[in-house]
Design a protein around this nucleic acid. Structure first.
Lengths: 143, 143
DNA sequence: TATCACGATACTTATGATGTTACGTGATTC
DNA sequence: GAATCACGTAACATCATAAGTATCGTGATA
């Protein structure tokens, strides 16, 4: 399967929404992401459940940010979209009987756990507000 | 997709082979792993190409270790089986036009790169010989 | 009342590891 | 040299999961 791109997509959307007045429709977001409005609703449902965005029906409806960008980290977004598995590798029998397999699992899982802890720490250390500031610094240098 | 378990499986096999006199058949290995001999041959072909194991046909044939266990790291095995992707997440457009997306990608990829570097370092730091010693220490404590 | 936009369901597609069957080839045994 | 063993390879099926698509319902707005 292709890489899970829900985190990247949602960050992309959130930053655009932060720079956009009024709600954005699933259709507009889908065009922006090069996908389908249903995929947008499906993925953003997680963000809504977490309280990060709000959705309104009817004329003038759509999606809008519903939180302080400084209070949401990239890790929060990752978890809100389903907190999918991070790694593509692993072992088959986490609770193996075979003593050899146990040693192997301990070694591989240990390495994976360390890498995961680092990744979680990195994603947890950056807020949406900081990401937005990165964008401003890059694209709207102060006069 | 399920997690890629080729690394774990091959480590499991290699450690068993190290403690086994004479070659092991794909059939015996498959039973050990709870899989199919064809899967075993397919996966171990990479180890053979890397020179870590040898395969012989005919009576008394099978698979045997063909290298010094101290010279092969877990990372080497991972790469020998195809060096598959490590992460299940990523971004869709590595080379995005959108400036917002570029900032997002830089942040996510930066975190992934750091985690990958750590994982590679950990896997590269452990040799098969050390893994085998871990097993001995755990299961055959010195008198 | 017509239209807009989300909500939800159901189904399909894409991808990659894994599982399975079948057949070929070389090596060993008799 | 015939039978058997074990790997090599090809072809196809299975499984899991993100993503794409079509469709209908519901509430809100004009």
């Amino acid at each position: 399967m292709r890489n899970d791109s829900r985190l990247s997509r949602m960050l992309h959307v959130l930053l655009h929404m932060a720079r956009h007045d009024g709600p954005m429709t699933s259709d507009a977001i889908a065009r922006m992401l090069g996908t389908n409005p249903v995929v947008v609703r499906r993925t953003m449902a997680g963000l809504r459940d977490a309280g990060y965005v709000r959705s309104e029906k009817g004329h003038g409806g759509g999606w809008a940010i519903a939180t302080d960008l400084a209070s949401v980290s990239l890790l929060d977004v990752h978890r809100a979209v389903g907190g999918p598995r991070l790694f593509a590798i692993g072992n088959e029998h986490p609770n193996a009987d075979c003593a050899v397999e146990k040693v192997v699992n301990a070694a591989v899982e240990g390495a994976l756990r360390e890498a995961e802890a680092l990744l979680v720490a990195r994603l947890g250390a950056v807020s949406l507000a900081e990401l937005a500031r990165s964008f401003d610094a890059r694209c709207n240098p102060p006069d």
